[in-house]
Design a protein around this nucleic acid. Structure first.
Length: 268
DNA sequence: ACTCGTGTTAGCTG
DNA sequence: TCAGCTAACACGAG
């Protein structure tokens, strides 16, 4: 389920939906499409095309043109916790956003929360069982911090250390840094050997340096290996789990309102 | 049967 | 203003 690496794979899938004439849009799910009313998105994009697929953190958006060829509104797409994009038509079916797993559960049609139908007969669908995904026109991209893959060390230090909250809560704040989710935050802090609840104003220069490099490393590994669930520490998140580095028991608690795992010895 | 969760956001409290 | 909590969304996993 999607953090930055999974969303980037979904963005690539989204590129398969570009430059195709929009015949119809089903935006009748008023929770997923809030604050729009059913029909608002359909009306805004009818007869137009999606022209570019972008991503910042976990938010994707498409640039569009409308039927007369002028620029249309941006179409924002967020996968939430378990959303998946499926594009059909052209060269078959492609899907992205959720790690591949055997599809044994039924795929109920009502789990398609938003659908763009193209004139060529293909479709772009947001498939999302839990209904936590979101589609909207003109998403507020200014509310997002720099993408976690692009941020410079200086910018990272300046943004992370602002305020006094727990370092994990700060890593998860999409307005500070966009793209880090719960698992990637735990993996990064474990790599950096920093306690998740440590207040950001107590981080010294060496810790900030380790944290930045750990973020780069765990992000690169997740992109390379196909998802954040492939992290070295992530498999040890259970009652009997031991730290893969030192063997000490893994500790569990809540930090920043989210379930958190850390090494009881190295991240004390 | 019951709790938890790889996300976000509005609204509230201290 | 900042930090932390809750509810809402709806389903599968343990």
């Amino acid at each position: 389920m999607p953090e930055l690496p999974e969303v980037e794979s979904a963005r690539r899938v989204l590129e398969g939906a570009l430059d195709r004439e929009i015949a119809d849009i089903d935006d009748t799910d008023d929770w997923v499409c809030r604050p729009h009313r059913p029909g608002d998105i359909a009306k805004a994009l009818a007869g137009g095309r999606l022209t570019e697929a972008h991503r910042r953190g976990k938010t994707m958006w498409c640039e569009t043109v409308i039927s007369d060829g002028t620029a249309g509104p941006r179409l924002g797409i967020h996968l939430g916790m378990g959303g998946r994009l499926i594009v059909t038509g052209g060269d078959g079916e492609r899907a992205g956003g959720e790690p591949d797993r055997p599809d044994r559960s039924p795929r109920k049609p009502e789990w398609d929360r938003f659908t763009v139908s193209f004139a060529d007969g293909g479709r772009l669908r947001l498939f999302d069982k839990r209904r936590l995904g979101r589609v909207r026109l003109e998403p507020d991209l200014d509310a997002l911090g720099p993408d976690a893959e692009d941020i410079t060390p200086a910018e990272f230090r300046e943004r992370i250390t602002r305020g006094r909250s727990a370092v994990k809560a700060r890593l998860l704040d999409q307005g500070v840094l966009a793209g880090v989710g719960n698992l990637l935050a735990d993996e990064t802090l474990w790599q950096a050997r920093i306690r998740p609840s440590k207040p950001v104003d107590e981080l010294d220069a060496a810790e900030l340096d380790r944290l930045y490099r750990a973020l780069e490393r765990s992000l690169a590994a997740a992109v390379r290996n196909g998802g954040v669930h492939t992290g070295e520490m992530i498999g040890e998140r259970n009652a009997d789990g031991a730290c893969p580095r030192c063997g000490a028991p893994m500790a569990h608690g809540t930090v920043g309102g989210r379930s958190t795992w850390w090494c009881s010895a190295e991240q004390a």
